[in-house]
Simulated assay, not measured.
Amino acid sequence: MKKLLITGLATAATLACGVATASAQTVYIVRHAEKASDTERDPVLSDAGILRAEAVAALFADDMPDLVVVSPLQRTRLTAAPTIAASGAFVAVSPLDAGVEAHVETLRRGVLALPDDAVILISGHSNTVPLIARALGYETPDMPECEYDRLIRIELRNGEVSGETRRYGAPSTY
């Protein structure tokens, strides 16, 4: 697995996909899967979370990602792990230490720097997934803490944004 801690995702984009051009073609954004503990700061995934992580990988049977972006927290990496193993995608860790706004802006800039045919998976958090989608031009509602089954798929082509929200894996309990 190729992995890099980054402060600017555009650097990882160039390393993963060659010379950067206008924008990424397809961006998938998911929240990390169910965690084993609500009291630990950086918990592992629960059994349900492990199944959901496998469901994420199944989404990419035909179109594997070139780049997977995670936060420094292990639950985002563990959610993306089966996809990374199946695809051999480059992994970028987008830091959270400068705050959520900086994290989202780093992701936005990095995605927009990727080649037109890039496929990206972003594994985020309930408070970042909607913000990342909105920063890329796709409107989506805030995400409740108990929602794990939302998948946002965004197409960026020639300055145009289209997208859809799907559900995957076992339904979340609301």
Rank of each mutant, 00 (worst) to 15 (best):
S123N: 06
R153W: 02
L131Q: 11
Y138R: 13
R153F: 06
L107Y: 05
A118G: 11
R134E: 12
L136V: 08
I132G: 05
V111M: 05
V111Y: 01
D142N: 08
A118Y: 02
Y148D: 00
D116F: 07
L156D: 06
P130E: 06
E139D: 14
T140G: 11
L131N: 04
E155T: 13
L131M: 13
R157A: 15
M143A: 07
R134T: 09
S126A: 15
P144K: 10
T128R: 07
G110N: 01
G137S: 09
D117S: 14
P115R: 15
A135Q: 10
L151S: 13
R157P: 11
C146H: 13
L151V: 14
V111G: 00
A113F: 00
V129T: 11
R108L: 06
A135F: 12
R109C: 00
I120R: 03
A113R: 00
P130F: 09
R157W: 11
Y138Q: 15
R157I: 14
A118F: 04
P141R: 07
D116W: 08
L107T: 07
D142H: 04
L112H: 04
M143L: 15
I122A: 04
L151Y: 12
Y138P: 09
G110W: 00
R134N: 11
D117E: 14
L131S: 07
G137P: 07
L156S: 08
P141C: 09
L156V: 08
I152G: 08
A135E: 10
D149Q: 05
D142F: 05
V119K: 12
L112W: 00
E147Q: 15
R157Q: 15
I152M: 08
R134Y: 09
M143S: 13
H125V: 04
Y148I: 01
N127V: 01
C146G: 10
L107K: 05
Y138E: 11
L114R: 01
P144C: 04
T140I: 15
I154K: 11
